[in-house]
């Protein structure tokens, strides 16, 4: 996901802002970091729920559904 998209994402439960932690960025052909996030965690600023970013896709399913999701 692009870092610029973070501003329009929110916690699926309480709709508060998400903060990015432990971000890993993709690199371009020159080895420079891009704004494409490939891994990390999105943390709700209100409830503290943690949403993983895996293979560049944020998993923003509510926690009760996420547990059924194969890794």
């Amino acid at each position: 996901m692009k870092e610029s998209l973070l501003e329009i994402l929110c916690c699926p439960l309480d709709k508060h802002d998400l903060e990015l932690e432990d971000a890993e960025y993709a690199t371009d052909d020159d080895g420079d970091e891009t704004d494409e996030i490939v891994a990390g965690v999105l943390v709700c600023s209100e409830c503290g729920e943690r949403y993983p970013i895996e293979d560049g896709i944020p998993n923003l399913l509510p926690p009760d559904m996420r547990e059924e999701t194969p890794a």
């Binding site: 699926p12 399913l61 559904m65």
Partner: peptide, 9 residues
């Protein structure tokens, strides 16, 4: 993004 349409992120 992985999400539920009843709980849009």
């Amino acid at each position: 993004r992985l999400g539920e349409i009843e709980h849009l992120p």
